[in-house]
Structure formats: C-alpha cells, structure tokens
C-alpha cells in the first residue's frame, strides 16, 4: 500500500480550475519529486494534500485512510508534515520555539525531546542559534529551521515546497544533501521543486506537472533522460 496516494484531485481557487485531476503516489521510504514551472500547480497540490485547500473531486489517502476534507490540523496529526514555500518560519519566535511549535500537535514529551535532538544533530547550526529570533536567521538557516520544524511533527510523509528557492548554490547543494540523508534514515519525502536537475538527482521517481495536470511520470533516471524534461526543465538543447 502506498504511503500517500493522491487520486484524481480537482482543486479550485474560486472559479479558477487550478488542479485538473492530479494523481500521484509516494511509497514508504521514497523520495518522490513533483517538478514543474511557475504556476503549474505544484504548491496548489501541496496545499490540497495538507488540507488548506479542499479538492472538489478526487481522494487523498494516507496509508489507505482518506484524509481529504479533514481540517489541516487533523491532517498534521495523522502524519503529514510540511516545510512551506518561502520557509515561512515564525520570525518573532526563537529557533527553539519555532521547533517546539512544530511539535504542537503532539504530547509525547519524551519522543519530542528525542526528535529535537535528532533535528539538532541534523542541523548543528540551529542548536548554536537556538535562542536567536527566527526572523534574524539567514536564508539558508531559515530553510533548515523550516525543515527542522516540519520534522518536529514526526511526520510519516514530509512535504518540502521549493527548499532551494532563493538560496546560493553552495547552500542548495547542502540542502539537497540533507534531504538525501533524511531519506536514508527512513523519512518518506514528497519534494516539490523548480530546480528539476537537483530534484531528479535525489528522487527515485518524479512527476512533471503542467497547467494543473500530470503530463509525465517515470523513474527519476528516465525523466532525466527524457527529451521533454531535458528541453523544458533541465535547460539542455
């Protein structure tokens, strides 16, 4: 059974038909990437999965259990964590408080403490800056914090929305390294990216989204080789 299964969802912003039947699956322990251009519907897909947007049609299943239609906080409690686009950390809260906020839906104190140690081990930089305000971190640190905060919910599926956005190349490299490492330790990841080249390097499978529809789906390796992807997303001739 797939960890996360999205089945033919249609989402709207008012009357605008933003998602026209998106289907995708993420299996346990996988990194699956959803790539596409600006405005293709990547973030809308993520918002629909996390319940901020309700699909008018279609179903979303987490380990066989339907979650579409649930309010966002219940979807978080069922195990979908996310680092939203643009990081969106709480600027007025300290690093530690941001991380604690990530565990808001949980009450298993001992396990939370373990996850905090895990996040600090993953991002030692956050531990150094634990009492600094989130808003004063650099872009790369904010991205680490956003990922750390999402991990604090101990998600079954971690959704990352454009983690490389607006970061210097060295930092992009480092972020993707961390994604790979997280996955090795067992985290299932749905990665949404514009940086198709990088995303297809870490992912095992990928989906290409265009104007609200999946136009291509294959293993990451095949996608890298595909004519269409190379032309449209990898910038090769």
């Amino acid at each position: 059974m797939a960890m996360l299964e999205v089945n033919d969802i249609h989402s709207y912003y008012g009357n605008i038909h933003a998602l026209k039947g998106i289907s995708l699956t993420v299996d346990k322990g996988e990194i699956v990437t959803l790539i596409g251009a600006n405005g293709a519907g990547k973030t809308t897909t993520l918002k629909t999965i996390s319940g901020l947007l309700h699909p008018r049609h279609g179903a979303i299943m987490l380990e066989g259990e339907r979650i579409d239609g649930l309010p966002p906080h219940q979807i978080v409690m069922r195990g979908i964590g996310q680092a939203p686009e643009g990081r969106k950390i709480f600027g007025a809260l300290t690093v530690l408080e941001n991380l604690e906020m990530g565990a808001y839906a949980r009450n298993d104190t001992a396990a939370i403490a373990r996850d905090l140690d895990f996040v600090f081990a993953l991002f030692p930089r956050l531990q150094e800056r634990r009492s600094q305000l989130g808003g004063t971190l650099s872009g790369g640190e904010q991205q680490m914090l956003a990922m750390g905060r999402a991990l604090m919910a101990h998600p079954r599926v971690l959704m990352l929305d454009e983690p490389s956005m607006g970061l210097a190349p060295v930092l992009v490299e480092a972020i993707f390294e961390t994604i790979r490492k997280l996955n090795k330790e067992g985290t299932t990841i749905l990665l949404i990216e514009q940086n198709a080249a990088k995303a297809l390097q870490v992912a095992s499978r990928g989906y290409v989204i265009e104007t609200g529809q999946i136009v291509l789906q294959d293993s990451a390796e095949n996608l890298r080789k595909s004519e269409k992807v190379r032309k449209a997303y990898l910038g090769e001739a």
Partner: peptide, 14 residues
C-alpha cells in the same frame, strides 16, 4: 504570525 503556517503546525485555527 501566519495563519496558514499555524495550521500546518497542527493548530486548530477555528
């Protein structure tokens, strides 16, 4: 600070 992110943290907005 941010309603959407608060929801994504598992806070019951309503």
């Amino acid at each position: 600070e941010d309603e959407d992110v608060a929801q994504a943290m598992g806070i019951d907005l309503v």
